[in-house]
Design a binder for these strands. Structure first.
Length: 629
DNA sequence: CTTAGGG
DNA sequence: CCCTAAG
């Protein structure tokens, strides 16, 4: 009976599946809701480090204990220097037209400006990132008239000023590194003169003075290539998202052009020849795009929040192009942006001076009532920043885009030759006490092969996944790791930072991170190409179960493959169909036997037809047949 | 939770 | 693989 039915209705003698659901009408993106509220999804905070970090590597005979066993490649850094300065704040506006009834507004800090007036190291911004992440207080304030519609507003809080003086004296040293950071508050297209102004009055009416102010236009290059380029932060943007898009766009643009040869993903555990080539490539270039590489390694698809500084990302993410569609993935780290080699300063005894261009602080989220004063806004932002950074940071060192975990290793051993040091060296900030760095969930046991070098993990600087095993990739040279001067950077950082009384947590108005709940970062699953055997199983299952019963397929053929969800199977089938339709030359990956692909096409055709039939019949048999198996 | 589709 | 609207 049942068998008969199978023969009658099934494919290859298999049962007819449940009547598939009516085909979903294609969803139009137009239906996607757009959140137009003024809740800023998040904001970037960019910290520019003034001055240079002198990193004296080399063969100094300093006796560092190699056996420190210090796997931790970070050095603790206090960041109280952020206490003094001006905040640059920009309002998040989605439209030029403010039609918000929202009692609350959000702002994002766009920049933290180095307090130091020494800007020479910024004059040539080798990377687009630094282009719009940099500035100096002097430039901003004195140049405010040129800054699109926005004028700078220097935070005049006496507290800040006082601290400023303190810093000054400290900065008079020839090494103004970390002489404090200037914060400057800017209001988009508005000028706030006094702290007592109500934010509402200041932010209410943007009144674009320039039509293009409403557009996404960017003026990355400002007035050309004048020396002011370092302040080309004066791009116009109407929204936070635009800002991010700018970055992405720039990044892609550059990568697509003359730097396209730079491999974006380090994939080997050792310095391969390609790496070397890359190095040469770098070296041959005028500017180091190291930072770009790192940035690009971020998963751009979706924003992830490391420690919970979440933000409701509106759905209106542009779908125009993949890169611009999503804001830059800020994984919650302060990613080092750039360092600059200063060849002239290179001395014989293998000392190198580096200039760290900037550090970037990813996500912050602030809500403040519209009735709040500008002053309180500034304080709020300042406190938010301080609270985040104040907890202390750790520094991760990246060489060739890979984390260098061994503090005792010499720079050279880490693949940081003097010639290419600045091109290959990077730093990243990491949250200091990861609340509960939950290790990644044990993916599955069936597959023991875990790529130890998932590209994404690099720039994201995952808290400490590398603790156990897999010192991996970290440019572990085979050279004996002789004791050496581990990281002068540490010293320098510490020395440069100025202690400051901690802020009162209560004063913080920052939206508390939705932390702890999602402390486990939603990390993209590692890619696991289907093996031929899996494909075989999938094909067989689909042949009998049909498309549209992916859960059953899963249960039937992949029940013990935990990492294969029914969605995965469905996706795989989709790609299989596609693969089967394209020419063999276009196929990639492990070749799937043509025989299997043929079966894919056959089954796909069959079940598609069945689906159509059932939609027409809306059948009486549907129930019975579904009971067949 | 499942499906179906788009990204 | 991810995301998510629909069921």
């Amino acid at each position: 009976m049942v068998l008969q039915k199978r023969l009658d209705y099934g494919f290859n003698g298999y049962e007819v599946p449940h009547t598939p659901r009516a085909a979903r009408s294609p969803r139009k993106s137009a239906f996607k809701k757009k959140s137009e509220n003024h809740q800023i999804s998040s904001f970037d905070l960019l910290a520019a480090v003034a001055g240079k970090l002198l990193l004296e590597g080399g063969n100094s005979s300093s006796s560092s204990n190699n056996a420190s066993g210090n796997n931790d490649d970070q050095c603790a850094v206090k960041t109280e220097q952020l206490n003094g300065g001006d905040l640059m704040v920009e309002e998040e506006t989605t439209n030029c037209d403010h039609n918000n009834n929202n009692p609350e507004r959000s702002f994002f800090v766009s920049e933290i400006l180095p307090k130091s007036h020494e800007t020479q190291s910024f004059n040539r911004s080798p990377s687009p990132l630094t282009e719009f992440h940099f500035g100096s207080s002097s430039g901003i304030t004195s140049d405010s008239s040129e800054k699109f519609e926005t004028q700078g507003l220097v935070y005049e809080d006496t507290k800040i000023d006082n601290s400023d003086h303190c810093y000054r004296s400290e900065c008079n040293d020839k090494k103004p590194m970390f002489g404090g950071l200037n914060f400057e508050a800017k209001l988009s297209r508005n000028v706030l003169a006094k702290d007592e102004n109500h934010i509402g009055s200041g932010f209410r009416k943007p009144i674009p003075q320039n039509p293009s102010a409403c557009s996404d236009d960017i003026d990355l290059h400002g007035k050309g290539n004048d020396d002011d380029e370092n302040f080309s932060a004066r791009y116009r943007t109407k929204s936070f998202r635009s800002t991010l898009r700018i970055g992405d766009r720039r990044i892609r643009k550059v990568l697509a052009s003359k730097y396209c040869k730079v491999s974006p993903k380090p994939r080997d555990t050792t310095v391969t020849s390609s790496d070397l080539d890359m190095k040469h490539d770098y070296y041959s270039k005028k500017h180091c795009l190291k930072s770009l590489r790192s940035e690009r390694n971020f998963p751009i698809k979706k924003r992830r929040y490391f420690d919970g500084y979440t933000a409701s990302q509106s759905e209106e993410t542009a779908k125009t192009d993949g890169l611009s569609g999503s804001p830059r993935k800020a994984s919650g780290f302060l990613s080092s942006i750039a360092c600059q080699k200063q060849p002239a300063l290179q001395s014989r005894d293998s000392h190198v001076k580096l200039g760290i261009k900037s550090f970037r602080v990813p996500e912050l989220f602030i809500e403040i009532p519209e009735t709040a004063t500008v002053g309180s806004l500034k304080r709020t932002v300042l406190e938010a920043v301080t609270s985040i950074l104040g907890g202390g940071l750790r520094i991760g060192v990246l060489a060739h885009g890979k984390k260098v975990r061994d503090d005792s290793k010499m720079l050279l051993q880490s693949g940081l030759s003097l010639d290419t040091l600045s091109d290959t060296l990077g730093f990243c900030f990491e949250p200091n006490p990861p609340q509960s760095t939950k290790p990644l969930p044990p993916e599955d046991n069936s597959d023991s092969v875990r790529p130890c070098n998932v590209p994404n993990t690099l720039p994201r600087c995952l808290p400490s996944p590398g603790k156990h095993a897999k010192p991996s990739n970290s440019v572990e040279s085979d050279l004996d790791s002789k004791p050496s001067a581990p990281n002068r950077a540490k010293t320098i950082y510490s020395r440069a930072l100025i202690p400051v009384p901690p802020l009162h947590a209560q004063a913080l108005t920052v939206v508390p991170p939705r932390k702890t709940k999602r402390s486990e970062v939603a990390q993209r699953r590692i890619r696991r190409p289907f093996s031929v055997a899996e494909v075989e199983a999938l094909v067989q299952a689909v042949e009998r179960l049909g498309t549209g019963r992916w859960r059953d397929v899963k249960l039937r053929a992949f029940d013990n493959a935990k990492h294969r969800t029914y969605v995965d199977l469905k996706d795989k089938w989709k790609t299989l169909v596609h693969t089967a339709r394209i020419s063999p030359q276009q196929r990639r990956g492990e070749p799937v036997p043509q025989e299997l692909l043929d079966r894919v096409l056959t089954a796909h055709a069959y079940w598609s037809q069945q689906q159509g039939k059932h939609q027409l019949l809306e059948g009486p048999h549907k129930l019975e047949t579904s009971l067949g198996l």
